[in-house]
Design a protein around this nucleic acid. Structure first.
Length: 738
RNA sequence: AGCGGGGUGGGGUAGCCAGGACAUCCCGUCGGGCUCAUAACCCGGAGAUCGGUCGUUCAAAUCGACCCCCCGCUACCA
């Protein structure tokens, strides 16, 4: 029996966890832990919420609540989400606990005592008005290198120059805009540099690590490590266990990783043996696995091992099978950037096994992988439901209906050999792949067995045998149930819900976990009553991805060409235009003072054609032309290339012919944005672009539709042949269109 | 800009480190079979000059050089 410590990266406690967290660290850790529990190994799986650090305080300040409240809120949400995903930690704790403080203090003092920490005075920006030291992100000033006005305290975003405190010209505090002063402050530094050699030896010995993890770490080490400050001027965090340091806390990057140890200790306090954690941390044969995303590699292959080396007597990571990123629309999941699908939302819509299946089948093990709604639906419906679920169901429902219990298998024949062989191949593959953290391959092996089952079921055709040879029919069903039982065990690490349900349907009294992997070699018992089967998975229906842009279909836009322009007889600012939109209509528009009449004639514009006609100062307007406005400026929208009058501007959608009330039109938000790249647009803030067809040019200013005020993705206005709608001149990003 | 990762049939992916005979799998698509099953299952076909160019080699998706494009990191976030 082996001892396995499974650690997953600690989710940060300022937002709900999302698919990226699950795919990257929580799920692989959980699959691995469940596998080892099945195998009868002694497993301890711990993690928790990382609750300290600036982002929590920033969020708290924004909401006007205490950091504790934020930290606790998301700890609750995420604990619940993790439970909902059927991820079974032995302990999922948090860093804002007495226990964690005590363990961190112990580590700190021990390192101090052993000479791995030292004090150093540094200069730091201090805002006298706010009465506090300023993190670099709170300081802005002019870059001495390129003159950029909004360079941060430590680095210029524009040219990349890095600064030491004081090197920024005309620095200001971004909170209160007053100039900060430079103040001496004292901090503890961790002598990371002293561990360079030992770390290099340590990493070099880990030949079983993923190549990218090892290479990445080695490169980092070969570049040489710098000592790093482990305290900071702040109050939210783990206190420094020394008199006179009440206004400082221990840096999150140093303190959070210690959570693996403190969580283990906390866990054992809750068992009958409070010293139990030592079995995992001091027994050199215990293996420690850390599951995390690639951005977290150096903290677990360098900093944490260095802390452990400095402390002494504790096990170092055995493997760090870091994953790449799960992306969405080609980009990393990131709450702050609005690229996120969070777990509470997913769980409100889907069975956890379905989510687990897709994330495992599509896990970013060796490269980034893309979360795609259509693919999610297809894989769920065609693989999980159709191949696996349907196999379960056809075997169980057929057997249940005609036999009621598990029929005996008569004799060892060709069928028996085929099935036994297929089972043993699958078992060996799953075993081998899971023990080496190759989750996609392991899941594939499970699915291959299900497919074999379907094929086998087809080939023996029990529905035909039933009439010809009932005994033989029973035999082949027995074999199929043997496959189903094996699938229950093998799929359990991935799909715990359905595996457990299936186990019940098979009529077992004892739990799947009681004998775990051992069940594979225990033949199913003839005569064992089956429970009435019901399908274990249901198909899912993802609403059209474009649904969020549905509102846009209320607008029926067309390209119009201005034929003539006349002054409104009864208004100062209005023109009366005759416009060709495939037919001739009259528009009244407030362009006077912005455009001369002769400049307008012949121009291609964008017209709302289904707006309810309205009289403006006595003249009926049969539509409305679209223009962007900002302060006093008004600029027409116009197609980027010449297209005929009457061309629909539908952005690849199906606009309505229904009459649109002006009040409803006002609810639709159209703005001008500047294209950053093929996926990003600046509309005053940065957003994603939904591109169906057509091409857009970097830097150009185009018209986009925003589905909602807090939307993170914009729909560019395109003609039905993919020509973008741009502005007839220059105007502010984010300028409103009406 | 620097560092790291990536570009494989319509979509999503495997293979690449340790070069080799028809380039993997799922979906979609086309044709067939079966009817126990959630219109599910099974069989077969079509579809890729493996981002581009040049090179190494008997042989390159796989190794090297250069180029193009995408993503991530370069946060006193972990």
């Amino acid at each position: 029996m082996a001892r396995i410590l499974v650690c997953t990266a600690w989710p940060y406690s300022n937002s709900p966890i999302h698919l990226g967290h699950v795919a990257g660290s929580l799920l692989p850790g959980d699959i691995f832990a469940k596998y080892h529990r099945l195998k009868g190994n002694e497993v301890l799986m711990v993690s928790g919420s990382d609750q300290h650090g600036t982002p929590v305080t920033v969020k708290a300040e924004k909401e006007g609540v205490s950091p504790e409240e934020i930290a606790e809120r998301y700890h609750q949400i995420n604990s619940e989400a993790i439970r909902g995903m059927l991820i079974t930690f032995d302990l999922f704790t948090k860093t804002h606990t007495e226990n964690h403080f005590a363990v961190v203090h112990d580590v700190f003092l021990r390192l101090l005592e052993k000479g791995h920490l030292y004090k150093k005075e540094t200069l730091q920006y201090y805002c006298e008005k706010c009465g506090r030291f300023l993190p670099d992100r709170y300081v802005e000033g002019r870059c001495r290198n390129c003159g950029y006005e909004r360079a941060r305290g430590d680095q210029c975003d524009k040219c990349g120059t890095t600064f030491l405190p004081g090197e920024l010209d005309d620095a200001i505090c971004t909170i209160c805009s007053s100039p900060p002063v430079l103040k001496e402050t004292e901090h503890y530094f961790f002598r990371l540099s002293a561990f360079n050699e030992s770390l290099l030896n340590y990493v070099s010995s880990k030949t079983h690590w993923k190549p990218n993890v090892q290479t990445f770490t080695k490169n980092w080490l070969e570049a040489g490590l710098n000592d790093r400050p482990i305290t900071r001027d702040m109050t939210w965090g783990v206190s420094v266990p020394l008199p006179g340091w009440e206004n400082k806390v221990i840096y999150v990057w140093f303190e959070a990783v210690i959570g693996y140890l403190s969580a283990s200790i906390e866990w054992s306090k809750g068992t009958r043996n409070p010293e139990k954690w030592k079995d995992f941390w001091m027994d050199p044969d215990a293996r420690h696995y850390y599951f995390l995303g690639k951005d977290n590699i150096p903290f677990h292959t360098i900093i944490w091992p260095a802390i452990l080396m400095g402390y002494g007597g504790l096990n170092l990571p055995y493997d760090v099978p870091a994953n790449e990123y799960l992306t969405f629309r080609g980009e990393k999941f990131s709450k702050s950037r609005g690229v996120s699908i969070d777990i509470p939302t997913m769980l409100s819509r889907f069975d956890p096994d379905i989510i687990r299946y897709y994330l495992a089948a599509n896990m970013p093990e060796n490269r980034d992988s893309e979360f795609d709604w259509d693919d999610f639906q297809a894989k769920t419906n065609n693989e999980l439901v159709a191949t696996l679920g349907n196999y379960y169901h056809r075997v169980l429902s057929f057997t249940y209906r005609h036999f009621g219990s598990i029929p005996p298998c008569h004799g060892v024949d060709e069928d028996w050999r085929k099935v036994t062989n297929a089972i043993s191949v699958a078992v060996n593959e799953v075993d081998q792949y899971l023990s080496t953290c190759q989750f996609k391959k392991a899941l594939k092996a499970v699915m291959d067995l299900a497919q074999f089952g379907n094929r086998f079921f087809d080939s023996v055709a029990p529905w035909a045998l039933l009439k010809q040879d009932r005994d033989r029919c029973g035999s082949v069903l027995n074999l199929n149930i043997e496959i189903v039982k094996t699938l229950a065990v093998l799929s359990y690490p991935f799909l715990p819900r359905s595996a457990s349900d299936l186990w019940r349907l098979l009529g077992y009294e004892e739990s799947l976990l009681s004998k775990g992997w051992g069940w594979i070699s225990i033949p199913v018992v003839p005569g064992q009553k089956l429970r009435e089967p019901r399908p274990l998975f249901s198909k899912i229906e993802i609403e059209e991805d474009m649904a969020m842009f549905k509102e846009f279909e209320k607008l029926n836009l067309k390209i119009g060409q201005i034929i003539s322009v006349a002054d409104h007889p009864n208004a100062d600012k209005l023109y009366v235009l005759e416009v060709d939109i495939g037919k001739r209509i009259r528009l009244v528009a407030g362009l006077k003072g912005h455009y001369d009449k002769d400049k307008l004639v012949g121009k291609k514009i964008v017209v709302v054609t289904n707006l309810q006609p309205a009289k403006l100062r006595g003249v009926e307007s049969q539509g409305m032309l679209l223009a962007a406005e900002h302060s006093n400026k008004v600029i027409l929208l116009t197609p980027a290339e010449d297209v005929p009058a009457g061309t629909p501007v539908n952005s690849g959608m199906n606009p309505s012919d229904q009459v649109l009330l002006f009040s409803d039109f006002q609810k639709l938000k159209l703005v001008v944005g500047q294209v950053i790249d093929a996926r990003t647009i600046d509309v005053g803030k940065s957003m994603k672009i939904e591109m169906r067809n057509g091409a857009i040019k970097k830097g150009s200013k185009i018209a986009v539709f925003l589905p909602s005020p807090d939307a993170s993705i914009a729909l560019p206005l395109l003609t039905n042949n993919g020509i973008v709608i741009t502005v007839d001149g220059d105007i502010e990003n984010g300028a409103l269109i009406r």
